[in-house]
């Protein structure tokens, strides 16, 4: 189990990329996730975020995803980087 302890980010708002911001928050209920994207992408992005959060054992904090058309592998990479930078 791990929590996000510091504010951090990974990625960019450039085309085909995604910006992931993380920060500290309440522990125990899982991180609060905010996704900013085109409507059709939302469920896919939320599924990937949940998968990564679960596999990394993240139990608290906040995650903001600003998608600019990134493929799944880009989102997974940016999430892993942001969480590690955030202290997970």
């Amino acid at each position: 189990m791990s929590v996000i302890t510091v504010e951090a980010e990974a990625g960019t708002e450039g085309k085909d990329d995604v910006l992931v911001k993380v920060g500290p928050g309440d522990e125990g209920t899982g991180p609060r996730v905010d996704v900013q994207c085109k409507p059709l992408s939302r469920s896919s992005i939320e599924r990937i975020v949940n998968d990564i959060v679960s596999s990394e054992g993240v139990t608290g904090g906040s995650i903001t995803v600003v998608d600019k058309g990134a493929l799944d592998f880009v989102l997974r990479a940016r999430l892993r980087t942001a969480l590690r930078r955030g202290g997970c």
Binding site: L71, F73, V74, R76, A77, R78, R80
Partner: peptide, 15 residues
């Protein structure tokens, strides 16, 4: 560098 390692690793698996 850390971000690029994650991105390259994921790209190798996925692309």
């Amino acid at each position: 560098k850390d971000s690029a390692r994650d991105l390259v690793a994921e790209s190798i698996w996925s692309l």
